[in-house]
Write a protein that binds this DNA or RNA. Structure first.
Lengths: 215, 215
DNA sequence: CCAGAATGTGAGCGACCGCTCGCGTTTGTC
DNA sequence: GACAAACGCGAGCGGTCGCTCACATTCTGG
């Protein structure tokens, strides 16, 4: 988050002052983040110019830098808010699955939720997928990726009680890779064709995992 | 290809002269393409500066522009040569497969060949995968992708004689997507772990396709 | 051997980009 | 209503990048 109002407890580091945000400022921030999402989506992170983001938001470059110290901070804050919403919407509800649930249903449910989220926030895929992500941003990226892998691992473990952890981990990596590839295809199509790709994605995952479970 | 020596048949368009290349020039071109491959690999296309490519090749920026009209042409020529080598190495031999061959073996053979090629030319993946590819390059990209899809479709059709063409096409798209995702994982690991991911990739594809075949 | 083409150099041009700064406007507080 | 702080503006600074150009060097055909 861009330096919070920070209730007057004085825990600000070296160079950052408290900055008492007005309501107008908070509005500008979300407005700028929406503009950034739009520009990132259509041009990618690197090619997106801060001037273009400001223009899209209908403000001057100076205003943008009133709220964000640099371009990277925009992407980080955007990613952070997306991850927060993701956790809030599906969050912990995704991990603990009753191991008596049929694998097919578990896979279908997980895919549906993630696909839905990514369709409503296409910028999420852009930020995760892009190989043009700079320094600090990569850390956030890796952190999210690791979280996702861990989550999938947790989801998988009850189904594969006798599999060595290293194999489960690799299986989780493969599942996430498949999901990303499927997501790309899903986002590239619309309507009935999109739904057909969602079905195919579920099929791929289910058929890959089914021979592994012991039940 | 950067304007060919063009045997004196005068079919040069408007602004391009015949340009009689010397052996030294041809050497420079391959040298520059190797340098470009290296730089593209480590920084991606967009972030790669032409000056960096020239420096990597040990020549001045002017020399680079003696052989390529612009940065994009470097990537296009590089991609074109890679596709040519790909066709030459595995080429038509990949498409016509005896439909009595077990699906598992067909998948394994195709995966092995493509993985081998991509491991020997990691820049290929960079150029195909990057979302930071500019105008004309995207066409080449799409052309290759379409070729690949068509090839996979041809490979699949004998196994799925009763499936509607639209479904076969979608299945091919999914297979290529899975392959790309698997390739990324394979390239990210080494040695035994890499081989494990290759096995997983084959498993994913085989288990996805097996229920579809009629045999 | 020599004319001219091909090859090679590197300073630097123009364009753009991330970001700043001086200054004017709005808002909240007493 | 006065004062400070937050907000807003936009020209422009420093830097990089793609690319050029005037000029030097090397090769090759006649």
């Amino acid at each position: 988050m861009p330096e919070k109002t920070g209730k007057p407890g004085k825990q600000q580091a070296a160079d950052e002052r408290p900055v008492r945000r007005q309501a107008r400022g908070e509005r500008r921030i979300t407005q700028l983040l929406e503009a950034a999402a739009s520009v990132f989506c259509s041009t990618g992170y690197t090619a997106a110019s801060t001037n273009a983001i400001a223009r899209e938001a209908g403000v001057s470059p100076g205003t943008l830098y009133q709220f964000f110290p640099n371009k990277e901070a925009i992407a980080i804050e955007l990613g952070s808010r997306l991850m927060h919403e993701m956790r809030e919407t599906y969050g912990e509800a995704l991990a603990p699955i009753d191991p008596t649930t049929p694998l097919e249903d578990a896979v279908a449910a997980a895919v549906d939720r993630f696909i839905d989220f990514n369709c409503r926030h296409p910028v999420f895929f852009t930020l995760m997928h892009g190989p043009d992500i700079p320094g600090r941003m990569a850390e956030e990226h890796d952190a999210l990726h690791a979280t996702l892998i861990a989550r999938v691992e947790a989801l998988l473990t009850p189904f594969l009680p006798d599999t060595p952890p290293a194999d489960v981990r690799r299986t989780a990596q493969v599942c996430v890779g498949i999901y990303k590839a499927g997501l790309e295809l899903v986002l590239a199509h619309e309507g009935a064709e999109r739904e057909a790709y969602v079905r195919e994605l579920k099929n791929v995952l289910f058929r890959y995992l089914d021979p592994l479970v012991v039940d």
